[in-house]
């Protein structure tokens, strides 16, 4: 009689532990998704600044027409339907063009001194920093999730339910290289 209760008790306890472990892994995974969504939101914020940047800069940099065309083309290709990876690629391409525009501002003193431009540049810098913060959050969330699913006793459940480790955000090899200022200014 008592033995039955003890067995039921142990089984109940084991079930509760499994539920606890499972919920922890799910919570960590959701945090990773949430962190990724925050990167997406920040990239979108920067993306929304682009039309203002183009409009403002266009008045001063008439002969940078090809960059404007490229930016408009890339913007039209970004929609909510395309997969995240592809969207990130487009965002990064847009970023390169926008960076080029911002770099060329040095050659246009009137534009550089314009209050609208200064405001836009501040918003741009702020968004850049927020994107960086989101990436750091994503990396922290991924590290925490990976640590959990690889550590005992979570790893038993993670292996059974096929929770796989995720990759942290890493900069590309191109970005890792030292910046060649000469090349940048000639582009």
């Amino acid at each position: 009689m008592y033995t039955d209760y003890i067995i039921y008790g142990i089984v109940g306890l084991v079930i509760l532990i499994i539920i606890g472990l499972y919920n922890t892994i799910i919570r960590k995974r959701n945090e990773v998704n949430n962190a990724f969504a925050s990167i997406d939101a920040m990239l979108k914020k920067r993306y929304d600044l682009l039309p203002n940047l183009v409009e403002l800069v266009k008045q001063y940099m008439a002969h940078e027409k090809t960059v404007f065309v490229e930016i408009t083309k890339l913007r039209s290709q970004v929609s909510s339907e395309i997969p995240s990876d592809e969207k990130l690629e487009k965002y990064n391409a847009l970023q390169k063009h926008a960076d080029r525009l911002l770099l060329n501002v040095e050659n246009y003193p009137d534009l550089k001194a314009s209050a609208n431009f200064l405001h836009l540049q501040a918003s741009w810098n702020s968004t850049e920093e927020q994107i960086s913060a989101s990436r750091r959050y994503f990396n922290a969330a991924v590290t925490d999730y990976n640590n959990h699913i690889q550590m005992f006793p979570y790893n038993i459940l993670a292996d059974l339910l096929k929770f796989s480790p995720q990759s942290v955000f890493e900069i590309s090899n191109n970005e890792r290289q030292n910046i060649n200022a000469k090349e940048l200014f000639n582009s």
């Binding site: 962190a35 920040m42 927020q130 960086s132 913060a133 750091r136 922290a140």
Partner: peptide, 27 residues
């Protein structure tokens, strides 16, 4: 908020309302 700088983590405990904004502030 768990930050990536181990020395900073050893010295300080960071409590924030937003994981992203706390990191935005604490570059």
């Amino acid at each position: 908020v768990k930050l990536e700088d181990p020395v900073f983590e050893k010295e300080f405990m960071v409590i924030g309302e937003s994981q992203v904004e706390s990191r935005y502030i604490l570059s």
